[in-house]
Design a protein around this nucleic acid. Structure first.
Lengths: 316, 316
DNA sequence: TTGTAGGCGTTATCAG
DNA sequence: CTGATAACGCCTACAA
């Protein structure tokens, strides 16, 4: 591996000049800069991030903390992870995956990405001594990235109306968290604009729970109803039970999911769904976190990315 | 952060003695060792892995390389990743995720875990200058961890016979890779033991491809047939088309999947499947790779983990 | 068995 | 604007 010294020799300057060309190029005369850059090029020099980390008291490692149980969660974490990784790679950062909250501050890291945070988890955050960002909206002032949940369900609801479904029913997740409130708000607002009355069922985020609800209330559902669901899991359950009841999809009943990762592709018929730009969210989170680290913890704000409605086979 | 020096002062010894207590405890007298250990304890000392990395010319980072397209792959990678991460955490290692093969040697790492390798990829491996291990069986002498694919399909086939299905048909993946050959071999061997004639269809690893094959040949399938499938995706397609043809599962037709991650849980009826210990494989891969790094590249051999047959609703 | 000196590759600081 | 020096925290080699 070529080092700073090698480049310095090659360019006939001191190590410091080379270092400056890398970190503070404006402090070096253009002529010298060109020479040094050529030397770096010729020797294929890349700074040793470990040595940099040592002097800067950095680790070049961040932790990816998952507070949710990954087994029961949608497989979209893989996309978030790879997006996050892509973002980290630009700065030669690496990550450690942590599922046990007590392990967060164990070992060394420059910062944390925290996913799956619920209300009960927030107390812990203020005690963290390193910068962190959240995946998932919150209203406590913590930096985060999320889908624009409200707009997403507005899109879904409006689309259902455009397709001339007369009644729109929301099947939500029975959890008191901001993302769920936002999704419901998007649905409610859109209905109100059209002077329609919201009708909401809330179930645990499993397909069979959704099946149960459809089974129980099926007689009350009239034709031309569209179910706007807060997750693909729920949507899959709704579709399945509607089929079991002999209902025709999408002619008489529509179903719209939420997530757009994997499940929508293997279901039959294929789900119309709200697709979140998860990979991109991962990338955003990485750049946000790295920036926050570089700026010694300064706030990065909130980022809400626009989702996309994927039209497939469960809406007419 | 407390350093080696702090501990040394506290214990009234030199830094080296402390260092030795950590790395070569046998070279230190028991009495001193106790004193130093107490000092480390009192000061809550943890070695700075970055400084260690610098002197040892290590990075404490390994790369997780995915040569497969993660979008089209089973969501089991998430479990592999978390298992791998668990294994790395024991040694304070971090990882970088890489999907672009040309990026493998970019930046720094002490070694690589390579997944999704196909025949065409092997040429590249010999050029790698860092230790690596593979996820997925191969017969070229590279260290790997995988499910025992052959035993797995033996179990599946034998189980189908035990459940008194008279004909067992294998629906494989149309790919010329060791894992597929091993799965087929497990099936074929078991049939031959019972003097039955193997019948194999091969399709691309998508549910609709499996659907097509079932649709096309359905008339040729008699009652009491069990389909042993090389993946859950295929199994899901088989189930779906059998249902579409009006066949009764599991009474007249059985279906057994392979993978046991996620898909089997959301399908309806729930899949009987071969569950791979993926998390554990991830952990194994990590310890194997770390050991290989520690032993400067010495071979670690092949590890085939026993899978488990999960009996659910698609077999009688 | 224990300690001293030096160096890993980089950067901040201060002098020129 | 550029360079010499020291320091980050640890470990190897050698000396006592």
């Amino acid at each position: 591996m070529t080092t700073l010294s090698d480049v310095a020799k090659e360019a006939n300057v001191s190590k410091m000049t080379v270092s400056r060309v890398i970190n503070h190029p404006e402090q070096v005369t253009p002529e010298l800069r060109v020479i040094v850059e050529k030397a770096m090029e010729d020797l294929n020099y890349h700074p040793n991030s470990i040595a940099q980390a040592l002097v800067n008291n950095r680790t070049n490692v961040v932790k990816f903390v998952t507070l949710e149980d990954i087994d029961t969660t949608e497989p979209y974490y893989i996309n978030l992870l790879f997006g996050f990784a892509r973002g980290l790679n630009t700065k030669q950062y690496a990550m450690q995956l942590v599922t046990d909250p007590s392990q967060i501050e164990k070992g060394r890291a420059d910062g944390y990405l925290i996913t799956g945070a619920r209300n009960k988890d927030y107390d812990m955050f203020d005690k963290l001594d390193k910068p962190f960002v959240l995946f998932g909206e919150n209203h406590r002032g913590y930096d985060f990235v999320d889908t624009d949940n409200q707009t997403a369900e507005k899109m879904a609801t409006q689309y259902a109306l455009d397709r001339l479904y007369k009644r729109i029913i929301f099947i939500g997740i029975d959890i008191k968290e901001p993302f769920e409130y936002s999704r419901e708000a998007g649905y409610i607002n859109t209905l109100q604009q059209h002077q329609l009355i919201p009708q909401i069922y809330r179930v645990s985020n499993h397909s069979h729970a959704a099946q149960d609800v459809i089974h129980e209330h099926f007689k009350g559902f009239k034709k031309d109803t569209c179910f706007v669901c807060a997750s693909d899991r729920i949507a899959v359950g709704v579709v399945r039970q509607l089929q079991a009841e002999g209902a025709r999809i999408p002619e008489d009943f529509g179903v719209i999911g939420f997530d757009g990762v994997f499940l929508d592709q293997v279901s039959n018929p294929k789900l119309t769904t709200i697709k979140q730009p998860i990979f991109k969210m991962g990338e955003m989170l990485a750049s946000m976190l790295l920036q926050k680290i570089a700026q010694s913890g300064s706030p990065q704000g909130e980022v809400m990315l626009k989702p996309e409605l994927i039209r497939r086979e469960t809406t007419r």
